[in-house]
Design a protein around this nucleic acid. Sequence first.
DNA 1: AAGGCAAATGCAAATATTTGCATTTGTCCC
DNA 2: GGGACAAATGCAAATATTTGCATTTGCCTT
Lengths: 142, 142
Amino acid sequence: MTNLADLERYLTSQGYKLTRNRRIILQGLLNKAGWSNAREIHAYVLAHNNKVNFSTIYRNLDALTSIGLLCRVERPDAVNYYTLNHASGHHHHLICKSCHKICELEFCPLSLIDPEALHNFTEVECKFDLYGFCRECQEKNK
Amino acid sequence: MTNLADLERYLTSQGYKLTRNRRIILQGLLNKAGWSNAREIHAYVLAHNNKVNFSTIYRNLDALTSIGLLCRVERPDAVNYYTLNHASGHHHHLICKSCHKICELEFCPLSLIDPEALHNFTEVECKFDLYGFCRECQEKNK
DNA sequence: AAGGCAAATGCAAATATTTGCATTTGTCCC
DNA sequence: GGGACAAATGCAAATATTTGCATTTGCCTT
């Protein structure tokens, strides 16, 4: 989905209300390529709306992530970053511990795991990310 | 490793100093089966030493985890829990979103991933955990 | 268009966790 | 055993994030 109308349609189809904050958050993420954190998104909404609270930002980022519209990645410095899930499918990431570059991984381990290993758990969500040093940062530190 | 002397030997072999705090943390985790959070471990050390600061606890839990003596798991309520890595090998976990029960997974996705997919990253660490509802909690909510 | 209800929001307080810097401690070497 | 140096610690302040509760808003029904 690469336009606001589709994103909004999907949001409401999932039972969420279409609020002014959510519209601006989605618009902001559409405008800006790459990843943003809650602070940046908060600033964007402030600049394009009247006034919004940080907790609203966090709650909306959670909601949008939970229905798959956003990808969330936790950086090694413990700050969460978000981006529109253009891939639209479920996927994971590879993050550089030095420059924080984020690469996509098509691979999802949950699809490969033996259901027997899941101890009869249901509604299983997969949290999976890899952290290493990208080629550029390896060069720099030589 | 199931005794203090082995744990301590390993700690020093990795270049870490053997401090009073670390000894008590390891002893505490040896005594208590299962998982503990920083608050509980802090309380244990306070009760068995003179006085220790929370940041020291966190720094030591990080250090012990980074050399593989401890396993760390992040619960859905965003609290980290720690336990001795008896399995001694690298492994992952399956956590109940309701009762927070933690099961071990022998599976590590990093071992299966195609090196080509790693974009030339080096020293890659794998952060992988599954979150779902265990059989007991499914029954309870029927 | 008006009313009602649940969902979304604002606010303020609390959470776990991290960090910089000055001090203390453990270990290695003599 | 004593001294030196780096690593570990204490302290206080800062971080991102979450939560409870009262209020507001979006959306559905009439």
